[in-house]
């Protein structure tokens, strides 16, 4: 309770939501920021002091083996887990102190988007965007988000129980679109998608980044990272061992670099 009250007190200086993305993009101030972020699970260091800044319009791809700390990083930005030390910021707000506040700016797409089986795609979208504070959408608006996300025309009125993984992923994207988020946190969003769906997804990310959205994406897909990402970070044993711009490196070089880091 008290936590929530503090948050509402801090609400006042918050910049206007709709204009915010553009202004931030113009000043190029980092929307996603980590300052010596550490996470320690009973002696096991999952994250060893991460420093990271992602500017508006940037797509940052986190690469690394299972257990390297990619999901931990994303969970920390979501405030799903509490850091042992250090801070994570979304749009300039400390996520731990302003847990609810920061979630207004971000959208999250997990590896497998799970929705309410007994609700239709449209109902799911309406509920989630309602929770995000967007009560003003008409059904037509919601349908156009689903359409934009690439969901087949007849799908929105069917119950999600009958959707394929790809279709659910698209509803997840529609939720993010409807939220007009400035920050996208993606945890291996394309794993398990067929190449066509995966490609459509990348296109969408590019479009969003052109609109000034900052994207942090954990992925195993080196090819996609090189194609879509503006920056690539390689993680190993909870450490960011490399951080580079994709335009500075070729695809083959990236793969070699990655394998070098993974070696030993």
């Amino acid at each position: 309770m008290t936590e929530y009250q503090t948050i509402s007190n801090i609400r006042q200086p918050r910049p206007d939501e709709k204009g915010a993305g553009r202004t931030a993009a113009a000043t190029k101030e980092a929307l996603i920021k980590a300052v010596s972020l550490r996470k320690d699970y009973d002696g096991h260091l999952a994250l060893k002091g991460l420093d990271l800044q992602i500017a508006p319009g940037e797509i940052y791809c986190l690469l690394g083996a299972n257990g390297a700390g990619k999901s931990t990083t994303i969970n920390l930005f979501l405030d799903f887990i509490k850091p042992t030390s250090g801070q994570a910021f979304i749009n300039g707000f400390d996520v731990q102190e302003h847990s609810t506040e920061t979630k207004k700016f971000l959208a999250y797409i997990p590896e497998i988007v799970m929705l309410y089986r007994n609700l239709t795609g449209l109902e799911n979208l309406r509920y989630f965007s309602g929770l995000a504070g967007h009560d003003h959408y008409t059904d037509a608006d919601l349908r156009s988000f689903l359409n934009e996300a690439g969901l087949p025309k007849d799908a929105p009125d069917r119950r999600v129980g009958g959707y394929s993984k790809g279709m659910r992923q698209k509803v997840g994207i529609a939720i993010a679109l409807a939220k007009q988020a400035k920050v996208l946190l993606l945890d291996e969003p394309t794993s398990g998608l067929d190449p066509k769906a995966s490609n459509e997804f990348s296109e969408l990310l590019l479009k969003l980044s052109q609109e000034g959205v900052s994207i942090l994406m954990a992925t195993h897909d080196l090819f996609r990272a090189k194609e879509t990402g503006t920056r690539v970070g390689i993680m190993r044993h909870g450490e960011l061992v490399d951080d580079l711009f994709t335009e500075d490196i070729g695809h083959a070089d990236l793969e070699r670099l990655y394998l070098e880091h993974m070696h030993d």
Binding site: F80, S99, T100, K103, L106, F128, L131, G133, I175, L185
Partner: peptide, 9 residues
């Protein structure tokens, strides 16, 4: 995870 990534505690 989707729910709690919304601004609702």
């Amino acid at each position: 995870v989707l729910l709690l990534s919304q601004p609702v505690p």
